[in-house]
């Protein structure tokens, strides 16, 4: 496997550290005017999501991590595993609840998402930035209150709970930003 030297470190580069695949978040070159150069690096552990800080001697290298992002279609959850399919090859992958993590609350069957593979197996799942989901539970709507700014919680078909305007009803579909969990608007039904 290839390796990368500190001067090649940049945001998004995938490397191995302490046996875990990590993504470089930040690389700061530190050098006293008279003295040795170091690289102060922030890395996200792709298994745990935790951010590590680590200082290297400039010129040190790390092994590349066999990590890649693939666009896949979410198929179904069998109660234990989440199943995804690569749309071109029809190759299927099963991901554990650990790997899917918080993404599970946005996953709707047939939606495309990004699956991060580590040594060929799913390590993490990123939902699409915007999803369209049906409201399955919320307090009754207040007619004529479309202009007011009030919100109420609504449970979506995937189990996610988001704050929505008071006028929305059960059965309506809405657009949500999965990065912030924010309601973006009513979805237009084609």
């Amino acid at each position: 496997m290839a390796s990368y030297s500190t001067n090649e470190f940049k945001g998004g580069l995938k490397v191995m550290l302490d046996g875990d695949p990590c993504s470089i978040v930040e690389n700061e070159f530190v050098k006293p005017g008279k003295g040795q150069a170091f690289n102060r690096v922030k890395l996200r552990n792709l298994k745990t999501g935790r951010v590590w800080e680590r200082t290297f001697r400039s010129g040190e290298s790390l092994e590349a991590a066999d990590v890649m992002d693939r666009d896949m279609e979410y198929l179904y959850n069998d109660g234990e595993f989440y199943h995804f399919m690569e749309p071109e090859t029809f190759e299927q992958h099963q991901a554990s609840a650990d790997a899917v993590g918080d993404a599970s609350k946005w996953l709707k069957e047939q939606d495309m998402c990004t699956v991060t593979l580590y040594n060929g197996a799913p390590l993490a799942v990123t939902p699409p930035n915007h999803v369209i989901l049906e409201i399955t539970d919320t307090d009754p709507g207040l007619r004529g209150d479309t202009a007011q700014g009030g919100t109420k919680p609504a449970t979506l078909v995937t189990g996610a709970v988001v704050k929505v305007p008071l006028f929305l009803e059960i059965g309506e579909t809405i657009k949500v930003d999965t990065r912030t969990g924010e309601y973006l608007g009513r979805a237009k039904e084609d």
Partner: peptide, 11 residues
């Protein structure tokens, strides 16, 4: 020693 001192100084 100097490497330790440089690290403490810069970090």
């Amino acid at each position: 020693r100097d490497e330790c001192l440089d690290l403490l100084m810069s970090h």
